[in-house]
Each structure stands twice: as structure tokens, then as C-alpha cells.
């Protein structure tokens, strides 16, 4: 199996404050990986470093490419659409994506939009939090790339929307693509994850298979994750 993402010796400082240091991470193709960590631990920063929106020191390779401009062709990130004015209609955002990303698959988008019940005639300002997140997920997954990054897609969202989003992730993540999904509450997605990556103390503290954790520790993923903060469980 090939690797989709390789991060070597990555560190990131902002305003002379160290946010991430000595990050090494390799993700194989075809996995759904949970990115866990407390708020402010650097989960979003790690994703921004992968896309090239933030610039750190170290090597980041996505599908064999290293420059930010090339990496962007292989990564689809759930960006929050701040570049569009509130009065923009969803259909306009979709056609922007279609123009700008050669890998954007309109058919996939339409299937996702139908499944998530998205109405393209609405304006961005008319969307509820859940609907907006669904729209962002549909846009993100409609691109055909090797690596998907979903940044906290469930924060502040009702459970029905959450279920719909999880289903669409299972259904529409391409077979050989890897999806990294960040969340600070893992139970809701635990059954979907192949692996978990925990960001703690400015670096990657844990990277393990989910069933491996259940097998070896007999713990729920959530309990295992919490135990990391109590210093209880040692990892190897």
C-alpha cells in the first residue's frame, strides 16, 4: 500500500510561539483517520500546514508532491467559504469550485447534495450551521483527490446532520483516498475510524489503529484518548 501523506520533522512557530515541533506522520492510502486533541492543540494548524495555508519548517509530501501549489491539487480541505460574500448563492460557489478545481466532479456533488438535501438556490447567509457544514462537506468530497481533510465537521451540529455527514463520508470517500477528520469528541465517529492520531504537547503523541487499541487495551477509543491526558496508559 502506498503512502498518501508523509510529514517529516515539521515544526511551526507563530509570533515566536512554538505550536508544533518534530512532527512526523505517515498516512497510508485508503484510510479514515481521526485527528484528535484538545482545542488549541494544533489540529487545525496541522491541516493548514498540509494544505499550504500555513507555512512551517519541514517536509510535507502529498501523493509524491512537495511544493504547496502542487500539493493543493491532491488535497481537498473543508474550507469555511470566507472568501465569498454572504449574499452569494450556493450555485455560484459550486460553479466557482467547478472552474477552479479540475478534479471537481459535478455529478458527485449533485449526488452528495441530493443525499444531504442541499438547496442550491439559497444564499450562504440563509444556511443554518448544520446546513452550511453539509454544504462544505459536499463541496469537499465532490473533488476527486487522494487526501481529504475535514476540520471539525461536527462542532455545533445536531445529531441528525451528524449522522448524515458520517454516512456521506462512508459512501463518498473514494476507495484509495485517505480522509483525515478532526474532532475533540471521538465517540460519535469512533466506529468509522481505521486509525487515530492524537496531537498533544505540540507534537503527534499517538498514531495507532482503532481496532488495535480495542484489542490491546480493551478500552473504548474515547476512554483510551482520555487516559492519555491522565498519564495512565503507556503507548509504544
Amino acid at each position: 500500500m502506498t503512502d498518501v501523506l508523509t510529514i517529516e520533522n515539521l515544526s511551526y512557530k507563530r509570533n515566536q510561539k512554538l505550536i508544533l515541533a518534530n512532527v512526523d506522520l505517515t498516512l497510508a492510502a485508503g484510510k479514515i483517520v481521526g485527528l484528535l486533541g484538545e482545542n488549541g492543540a494544533g489540529k487545525t494548524t496541522l491541516m493548514r500546514l498540509i494544505t499550504g495555508s500555513a507555512q512551517g519548517n519541514g517536509t510535507i509530501t502529498v501523493s509524491g508532491t512537495t511544493t504547496p501549489a502542487q500539493r493543493k491539487s491532491h488535497v481537498s480541505f473543508s474550507e469555511q467559504l470566507h472568501g465569498f460574500s454572504k449574499s452569494t448563492k450556493l450555485a455560484r460557489v459550486v460553479s466557482f469550485y467547478q472552474l477552479v478545481y479540475p478534479d471537481f466532479d459535478l455529478k458527485r456533488y449533485q449526488d452528495l447534495a441530493a443525499f444531504l438535501q442541499i438547496n442550491d438556490d439559497l444564499k450562504l447567509s440563509a444556511l443554518s450551521k448544520g446546513m452550511r457544514e453539509k454544504f462544505i462537506i459536499a463541496l469537499t468530497l465532490a473533488r476527486q483527490v487522494e487526501l481529504y481533510l475535514l476540520d471539525e465537521p461536527f462542532s455545533g451540529i445536531d445529531s441528525m446532520s451528524r449522522k448524515k455527514i458520517i454516512s456521506s463520508i462512508i459512501q463518498w470517500t473514494p476507495e484509495n483516498a485517505t480522509l483525515l477528520i478532526s474532532d475533540h469528541y471521538v465517540t460519535e465517529i469512533a466506529s468509522v475510524l481505521d486509525e487515530i492520531v492524537v496531537v498533544k504537547d505540540q507534537t503527534i503523541a499517538v498514531h495507532r489503529g482503532a481496532d488495535e487499541i480495542r484489542n490491546q487495551t480493551g478500552l473504548e477509543i474515547e476512554d483510551y484518548y482520555e487516559s492519555l491526558y491522565e498519564g495512565g496508559v503507556q503507548h509504544d
Binding site: 495555508s53 501549489a69 493543493k72 480541505f77 474550507e79 469555511q80 472568501g83 466557482f96
Partner: peptide, 16 residues
Amino acid sequence: EKTYTADSFRLMPVEE
């Protein structure tokens, strides 16, 4: 100026 600070534009796969 908005183009340079919004992900919507900076994530486009193009050279700076």
C-alpha cells in the same frame, strides 16, 4: 487583498 487571505482563493492549485 481578500484573495490573499481567504482560503477560498489561496487553496486553488496555482503558483503564487
